[in-house]
């Protein structure tokens, strides 16, 4: 057991966990933040994507110990306050970008990361670019049509915000 400390959604978290604990287990089992999901064993579905030090990463493919001292944001911490929604969350709702909701947290975390990167680089986030950027996120319900639309809309909402 090792004490692993990090900042999760703006709050200090510290838990004694075994060295083989995955970041997703730390988040789900130890912090009980269950919005981050596990949908595969091979790092492909993206249901577990969180932001570590501001970058999207697959929390199922990372040890909690490797995130010692890191700043982690999960879907629960994306909005600035409890009563608020992040513009990307609003966009997913308004564009029917989710059905069963299981892949949604990972999709939203991937989407906010991608928009941030493109906006910082001054690159245009085209439909093709969004589809390419979603390579690591699998959805079985929506056929991606409305996820792509949500991200297009979320990107403009994030620019406006």
């Amino acid at each position: 057991m090792t004490k692993i400390t990090m900042t999760v959604n703006g709050k200090a978290a510290s838990k004694d966990v075994s060295d083989n604990t995955l970041l997703v287990e730390y988040i789900r089992e130890h912090l009980r933040l269950t919005g981050t999901h596990v949908g595969c064993d091979t790092s492909q579905c993206g249901a577990c994507v969180v932001h570590v030090n501001g970058q999207a990463m697959k929390s199922c493919t990372m040890l909690a110990a490797a995130a010692e001292g890191a700043t982690v944001t999960t879907v629960e911490g994306l909005a600035t306050s409890k009563d608020d929604l992040h513009p990307m969350q609003v966009a997913f709702k308004e564009n029917h970008g989710l059905q069963c909701g299981f892949c949604t947290p990972g999709m939203i975390m991937t989407a906010t990361d991608m928009v941030k990167r493109y906006q910082e680089a001054g690159k245009e986030l085209t439909e093709d670019a969004i589809r390419h950027e979603l390579e690591g996120n699998i959805c079985r319900c929506t056929g991606y049509h409305n996820i792509v639309k949500s991200i297009q809309d979320g990107a403009s909402k994030m620019t406006a915000a």
Partner: peptide, 9 residues
């Protein structure tokens, strides 16, 4: 290589 999240790590 891989996807954006994989490339970050």
């Amino acid at each position: 290589i891989g996807d954006p999240a994989v490339r970050h790590r």
